[in-house]
Design a protein around this nucleic acid. Sequence first.
DNA 1: ACGACAGTTTGATGGGGGTCAAACTTTGGA
DNA 2: TCCAAAGTTTGACCCCCATCAAACTGTCGT
Lengths: 109, 109
Amino acid sequence: MRLLPHPETEDIELTEVLRALSDPVRLEIVVRLALGGEMTCGNAGGELGVHKSTASHHYRTLREAGVVLSKQEGRLVYMSLRRDDLESRFPGLLDSVLAAAERPPVGLP
Amino acid sequence: MRLLPHPETEDIELTEVLRALSDPVRLEIVVRLALGGEMTCGNAGGELGVHKSTASHHYRTLREAGVVLSKQEGRLVYMSLRRDDLESRFPGLLDSVLAAAERPPVGLP
DNA sequence: ACGACAGTTTGATGGGGGTCAAACTTTGGA
DNA sequence: TCCAAAGTTTGACCCCCATCAAACTGTCGT
């Protein structure tokens, strides 16, 4: 098992986190990780409508922003949300983003 | 008094809000509006270290994302945070971003 | 050993964004 | 009336970013 380079918790910057979450594809990945817990890149990024190299670029963006943690095991890369790290650094932020992202786009009539 | 074009509350999109907040200059403007309430562009954007045309561009980005409301009175443009609109659409989001943005960059020793 | 599989890396491309400078618009004051 | 003040708009510049295609790196299974 091998950890990929990540920012330390105290080095996670708010604007970079917001920027990472501001892309629809990355936000979808984050929502899946929130619902499904740790999963491989393939599972987290499947059926996204983008090329796998594009998805890989998004994985890296999320990792470098400090949103996800990636560990390599064999030929698989497992990703998970850095919920505790984000919660300690920016309390409530991830939860509110997730609640907003999972909310249906239109309210009740 | 004249209102500038804004998105309806139900048309505010999460990714656009996050993107608008992901720029340090715009985030600073939002923090000032949160602390000072409604103020003119000049007051909200003074001493930011960017040209006034650049600041104007940021005002528009914030307005079009649905983060701020701008109304023109004479030659002044008053901006205010759309706190209630954002709260109803994305509960807790703005508060957590503001709390994170106003937090000192380094924790206690 | 060989091929399939999971991701990454490296161009290439097109579009958008942040910035400044300068011109413009509108308003308010002298 | 004339000029200064507050923002906006336009143009230019540069860099970054999302995307795809193709080549590459390891690893697992047969």
